[in-house]
Design a protein around this nucleic acid. Structure first.
Lengths: 207, 207
DNA sequence: CAACATCTCGGGTATAACCCTTAGCGACCT
DNA sequence: AGGTCGCTAAGGGTTATACCCGAGATGTTG
């Protein structure tokens, strides 16, 4: 429904043409590679692969395709994840259609577009934290990967199987994560992961 | 942006006419009362008053106006709150525009509309839980108390000390909680607690 | 009264998690 | 070439959880 609405809006503007749509992250990558659009509008919350991971993979597979993230999340922690994923722009779903149009125009010409309040908040946090883009710098990529799985309720053994490495290695990662974050419970790690946008909340008990 | 998209979609259908829009729950009630539409499409997540509360108030103030809830949440927990709020229909944002059109037609003629998968899931859970509606109600007061402490990262021993009862009792509560909710990890329990407002995320730093 | 739910403990066993330590290997930097 | 860091792995021991039972005390409700 949201996609149809967006298409309807975009098709009213002569300078835009919608060449495809996708319901999942996997489908988004697939269609983006075959249809080769100038710009992809990516939703963060999708069934299956989420938008950030899809963005990351798409950026790797087709660096020429620009990606704008659409999200209901206005959480400032999210913004760094979005940048890290390689997105060229971010538009909140609360934003006006004009903002979206300007975002598309910007990224198409090679510029980036982040709505003023997002940019301001991100910079504010950068200044406040002395340049550290916390909390993502506290953990290595592998540790974040493990943390996400822990917060999703996986056991060490399940994580080890999923990542194809030993259980003891997972235990080591787990210890290092807990030590670095100074959080010593699964509940705390889960809250940390949610608060920092590493996992989504509504994944549990979905229909 | 989402609203404009919806308007764009709906205005293509001759039998619908969009008479107004609102950004917040308060504005939604106000405009609904002045514009007196046949049907209100209400988003759950809005700044200010949320869609459920707004629905409840609007239903009370103007029982003749039908309300359809739109939501990204496919969480089965939500469905009972939606019914309780007095909504006549529920359409997921993942749904097609056709589903929305049918929903509007249905509620306008006095019927209700809940998408098949939602209805099925809700009934399934009703049967499974023996008629008790919300997972929230599945737990006793004591179990909720324990759940909160678990989700806050406390160990069984800490909880036992805090509540002044034995550790084995806490273990029993823990087992019963996990069995009733069908969640078998601390991470899952924590997410459940957050999703149901039992505990708060301290770093909910919205922009 | 009797049935039921709740809260409270307990035994027992298997599994998982936690804590401290060491260590090989590759990448990267100086 | 040496140092640092990250990923991998493991030993050994302690503690915590998960899951299986049963059971007494209490209050509520039919």
């Amino acid at each position: 429904m949201v996609r149809k609405g967006l298409q309807s809006c975009l098709s009213k503007e002569d300078r835009f043409r919608v060449v495809g749509e996708a319901a999942t992250g996997e489908e988004a990558i697939e269609k983006a590679l075959t249809l080769a659009p100038d710009v992809v509008l990516m939703d963060i919350s999708m069934p299956g692969m989420n938008g950030l991971e899809a963005t990351q993979r798409l950026r790797h597979a087709a660096p020429g395709i620009k990606v704008i993230i659409l999200s209901v999340h206005n959480n400032r922690d999210y913004i760094f994840r979005i940048i890290q994923a390689g997105a060229h722009g971010y538009v909140s779903k609360e934003a006006s259609t004009d903002a979206l149009f300007r975002a598309i125009d910007s990224v198409q010409t090679g510029q980036t577009f982040f709505s003023p309040e997002i940019a301001q908040a991100a910079l504010h946090q950068l200044v406040q934290s002395g340049g550290k883009k916390e909390p993502f710098d506290q953990l290595t990529a592998r540790e974040r990967e493990v943390l996400v799985l822990i917060a999703e309720g996986k056991s060490n053994k399940e994580i080890a199987t999923k990542l194809g490495i030993g259980v003891r290695t997972i235990e080591t990662h787990r210890e290092r994560i807990m030590r670095r974050l100074d959080i010593h419970s699964v509940a705390g790690l889960t809250k940390f992961a949610i608060a920092n946008g590493l996992i989504a909340l509504e994944s549990e008990r979905a229909i």
